[in-house]
Design a binder for these strands. Structure first.
Lengths: 271, 271
DNA sequence: CGGGTAATTGAGCACTCTCAAGGACGGTGG
DNA sequence: CCACCGTCCTTGAGAGTGCTCAATTACCCG
């Protein structure tokens, strides 16, 4: 993990006019604690960020740039990516619990703004805007995790990968006319860790999805999605777009929370 | 869903001296909203409780008695149990999102205390104790869901069931000397929906666990765990030492933290 | 142009699913 | 009390999906 002090940031995070992110969550902290409570970190690909004990109040990670995974390990070395987060996301940092630990791991070079609300809590418990924002944020993260539980519990590999590609397309895809260009931020093995598969299976299923014409390969890490709707139709669930629209409807009333959101959605599958 | 008004409750929930639960979360609500914000519900086995829009503030379900599952029903009738909750648990009620709805479903007869913090939020945002309590509660739920993601993503059926039995033992098991007696609150099919398996597989694996001596059957829904420690040893939960070792293995290859091998064979799953 | 990592592909196997047939259990009515 | 019935549980056979192991092939970077 690298703490950067480059000029590029200094400009971004000028106190009082930080433009690093769109959430401006830090602005809701009490003015005298704003500096202590935030810090923009630069993480190189593969480096990690572990939450420390927050004393009961949340530590938040705001993904300013890049893609970062919340990851954990089993005793035997098996690995699972619990969540995958994109620019604009704010993550409730997982605290160490009973021998198990999860950390944030940069999948690409990242800028992460760390916000420690414990610094704010005592002075700002009356801060209703902050509280509302935190609730919205937590609600979203609970939903995303619930969706991932369904994905891992009930979707097969093909569906999981279609979901993943759709997620990438809507979060970091670059529209090119009617098509969408995506750069995969993770290796096959990492994708496998995210989707509960292994690297070879990911590779094989990707080949199958390509053969079905749902995606075109530019290189192993760059692909083009000719028709997002068709890709999403391969997954018998609400699409990220639909969910986002629904959430905008939902949150429109409550305190102007307007983070672009998504996350894998609901699943079909067997039973 | 049944709203009970039986005498048995009336005694329990006498305002100001409610002893229905141990959380006493409702006591943290402002006094004038306490009645509006809570209500003790009786759910018969199989009945449901749906959250409604909370305006950005959480609706909480406090499990006083019984076992309840947060469940989603897919368009084709298949189910996924997202979470399973026991007496003493407080659940952040899932709000309807994008056409997908999750609800609480009583696995056994339940008493549920519903707490609506939106009633409290405006008057009591300064209530630091309540806020701290909510954070703790959310933190725990996020952790539980993260653990379930790992379970579904990386544990095989045998491990998932051992975990489930251990969970039951520690939450609703009755100690009998050195052994623990548990009454399964769910059918094989429901357990399958919880663990991402199907009913037949659950039955088969249960038979295998029995043959391995980790559990003794009293009846199909009552079992005895002779040695909880031995059961838990079947699940690779990371101890600090093991985690350290695994991390060293994991980081040894490169800064990218790659992993040579993945989880156990897990197949099927859907379609 | 080498060295190393990442990705692909193949063969064989393990785990879980589907479909199907009995068996155990509890409730009901005769 | 017992036959009947529905539900849940068990067990079997066969098929499907994904994993392991292993060998290439492609790609990146110096």
């Amino acid at each position: 993990m690298t703490v950067s002090t480059s000029d590029e940031y200094r400009k971004l995070i000028t106190p009082g006019s930080c433009v690093a992110c769109h959430s401006h969550l830090c602005q809701l902290l009490p003015a005298d604690r704003r500096d202590a409570a935030q810090g923009l970190l630069e993480l190189n690909r593969g480096s990690r960020l572990e939450a420390v004990e927050g004393g009961g109040f949340p530590r938040l990670w705001n993904i300013v740039r890049g893609v970062a995974a919340i990851t954990t390990l089993l005793a035997d070395g098996r690995r699972q990516v619990i969540g995958l987060h994109y620019p604009g996301d704010t993550v409730w940092a997982p605290e160490p619990v009973g021998g198990t630990i999860a950390w944030l791991e940069a999948q690409t070079d990242c800028w992460i703004c760390q916000i420690d609300t414990s610094a704010a809590s005592h002075a700002a418990s009356a801060n209703e805007a902050l509280q509302a924002r935190l609730f919205t944020l937590v609600q979203r993260q609970l939903e995303e995790q619930a969706a991932r539980i369904v994905t891992l519990g009930r979707l097969d590999g093909y569906e999981r990968l279609c979901l993943y590609l759709g997620e990438l397309a809507s979060r970091i895809g670059r529209p090119m006319g009617r098509e969408i260009l995506i750069s995969l931020p993770m290796s096959r093995a990492d994708i496998g860790d995210y989707l509960g598969l292994n690297a070879e299976t990911v590779s094989r299923i990707l080949a199958r999805i390509r053969k079905d014409g749902l995606v075109k390969f530019v290189s192993p890490t760059q692909m083009i999605i000719p028709d997002l709707a068709r890709l999403e139709k391969a997954v018998p669930i609400a699409t990220p777009g639909q969910r986002q629209a629904a959430r905008l409807r939902n949150t429109a009333t409550s305190g102007g929370a307007r983070l672009a959101t998504n996350g894998p959605a609901r699943a079909g599958g067997a039973s």
